[in-house]
């Protein structure tokens, strides 16, 4: 069996260029991740802040032994956004991960990865996209184990690879409206980039003060962090080839080490969860989607407990 690869998803939140540069420098030098996805997938207004740094960051990551993939915008509407997609689809030196069907129009003679914001729920859809050049599938976080097992098996037979998010907040919804701007009494066109104030997203709590969801511009995420440490061996056995970490402000090198050690069977699942908990993540863990339960729940092996 091929060694399961660890990947780092694109940064979903609006971090300053400086913060991103520091982050990727450290990832390049220290994190045991095999693949790093770069690119802005949530809001095209944020792209000018980091565009000029991509070459430098990609080079640095490559020197650190990482494969670099560019992820495309998840919601494409404006002319400028459509041009961005066309530009990414023309990239020669890097693989791309597509997150919207707009990209598929441009990619008729090129291989590409399919991102987790694309709706690949079944083997028929997977087969069709493989026929059009897809080589790798990052699966939607809401898929239950039963469907993932079939997709992993089908992918292996078809010679393509599969990826499941094992850490970080789950993307739950996209909208045309910016909810960060709305919370501040603004609209998307004059948002003044208030989303930068919330590097892990803006918490929404219920009227009776229960932690609930997280807002990131046009994207809504879970409050809880997906944590599939207890499911890693199952995931490996069914043939999932890549495990995805979503970047947060916590020490992502330490997070990557916890997952790498767990994947390599150096540390037990229970102990790994304890180590992850020790990193002071300010939200509960969840794995409900995997177990076919409400996504926010923590289910699975009773001997693996959080906090």
């Amino acid at each position: 069996m091929m060694k399961t690869q660890l990947t780092l998803a694109p940064i979903l939140f609006h971090w300053s260029a400086e913060k991103k540069l520091d982050f990727y420098a450290r990832i390049a030098d220290e994190a045991p991740v095999d693949v790093v996805y770069l690119g802005e997938v949530v809001c095209s207004k944020r792209t000018p802040f980091f565009e000029k740094h991509y070459d430098e960051v990609a080079e640095r990551l490559k020197r650190g032994g990482k494969t670099v993939v560019f992820s495309t915008l998840a919601e494409v509407m404006l002319k400028r956004e459509r041009n961005m997609i066309a530009g990414f689809c023309d990239l020669e030196d890097y693989e791309i991960e597509v997150n919207d069907t707009s990209a598929l129009w441009h990619l008729s003679d090129k291989n590409y990865r399919v991102g987790s914001l694309m709706n690949v729920y079944n083997e028929d859809t997977m087969a069709y996209l493989v026929g059009l050049g897809a080589t790798h599938f990052s699966l939607p976080p809401e898929l239950p184990r039963s469907a993932i097992a079939i997709l992993a098996q089908y992918a292996a037979q078809s010679g393509v690879t599969t990826e499941v998010q094992v850490f970080g907040r789950a993307s739950l919804a996209l909208s045309a409206r910016c909810y960060h701007a709305r919370a501040h009494g603004r609209i998307k066109d004059n948002c003044q980039f208030v989303c930068e104030e919330d590097p892990d997203g803006m918490p929404l709590v219920t009227i009776d003060k229960q932690e609930f969801l997280t807002v990131n511009g046009i994207q809504t995420l879970s409050h809880s962090y997906i944590n599939l440490l207890g499911e890693l061996s199952d995931l490996q056995q069914m043939g999932i080839t890549h495990c995805r970490l979503v970047p947060h402000t916590q020490d992502m090198v330490a997070v990557a080490n916890v997952f790498r050690d767990a994947l390599d069977n150096k540390v037990s699942a229970g102990e790994s969860v304890e180590k992850l908990t020790a990193l002071d993540i300010a939200a509960p863990f969840s794995n409900g989607f995997w177990h076919g339960k409400p996504g926010h729940q923590w289910a699975g092996k009773p001997e693996i407990v959080q906090k």
Binding site: A173, L174, P294, Q297
Partner: peptide, 11 residues
């Protein structure tokens, strides 16, 4: 087609 809020809360 791009919303799993209900699944997150209800399964």
């Amino acid at each position: 087609g791009r919303c799993s809020l209900t699944n997150y809360i209800t399964g």
